[in-house]
Write a protein that binds this DNA or RNA. Structure first.
Length: 254
DNA sequence: ATGGCCTCGGTTCGAGGA
């Protein structure tokens, strides 16, 4: 079973790229973030005509998440029931007896902002909810844009980024705390090339200069981590015309 | 020295992203 995640930065703009990527990469499940699409405008027919099952939760202008699956999706839940939130950032469902959670963690803007405080509270709420979910769903994968680079090796220039949003200690502690639930960063189960990132700023020719961060992750519960045979970041779509600033991450579960 | 780009909404600029 292949599970993937991709922050597409507008599904409307990137729909043909999503379809192209799915044609090139026959994954079982693709989690999307930043669809920026209200539910009434979601391109349901496009995916269904290709045989995909879908679940989505969107809003106007910002956020929005979706799951695209080759297999039926059951028990769909929108957002975190323990954390009332106007913003549509989580959707989950069960696919082939795996609980799949698609998450778009708040960006936080800057460490001195209200949005940073919201991000930390949001992550606390996520931790509390995942602790409960893992008890009822031992086979659980949470994929998405975490907006956290877990360690300095996930940052192109740790000195420049030190203490800033996306790499600050409190954010990293929140990420580590998810690990303490026995959720494993699938990417780090394997040897990886140095300076492998999942996001590059649109400015400064950042992609060409590989000035990126690894902020998109797939966390697996222990039974899934034990069966995980690969986790890769696919840089190809970042090279396409009018790309998302993020690129997909794929985990293979045997 | 600063900020550089992209998307959206809604009109041509501000907010938000990361």
């Amino acid at each position: 079973m292949k599970l993937a995640t991709w922050n597409v930065n507008s599904l409307k703009v990137r729909l043909t790229q999503v379809l192209q990527w799915l044609a090139d990469n026959p994954v079982d499940v693709l989690c999307l973030q930043e669809t920026k699409t209200t539910d009434d405008k979601f391109p349901i027919a496009v995916f269904e005509e290709l045989g995909f099952h879908i679940a989505f939760s969107g809003q106007k202008t910002y956020n929005g998440v979706a799951i695209i699956s080759k297999h039926p999706i059951t028990d769909v839940v929108k957002n975190n029931p323990l954390f009332p939130d106007e913003q549509q950032r989580i959707i989950s469902g069960t696919i082939n007896d795996v609980r799949v959670i698609c998450a778009y963690v708040p960006n936080g803007q800057s460490v001195d902002s209200d949005k940073y405080q919201y991000k930390l509270k949001w992550l606390e709420g996520l931790h509390e909810w995942l602790a409960a979910e893992l008890k009822t769903h031992p086979k659980l994968a949470i994929l998405g844009d975490y907006n956290i680079a877990p360690a300095d090796c996930d940052v192109h220039d740790p000195v420049v980024w030190q203490g800033q949003v996306l790499v600050s200690d409190r954010e990293r502690e929140a990420f580590q705390k998810l690990g303490a639930l026995n959720l494993v960063d699938a990417f780090r189960l394997f040897d990886q090339a140095d300076k492998t990132f999942s996001w590059w700023d649109y400015r400064q020719m950042a992609f060409r200069r590989n000035m990126g961060l690894r902020i998109d992750h797939i966390l697996l519960s222990a039974p899934l981590a034990a069966r995980c045979s690969a986790c890769v970041i696919d840089k190809v779509p970042r090279k396409w015309e009018q790309p998302s600033d993020h690129t997909p991450v794929i985990a293979t579960i045997d």
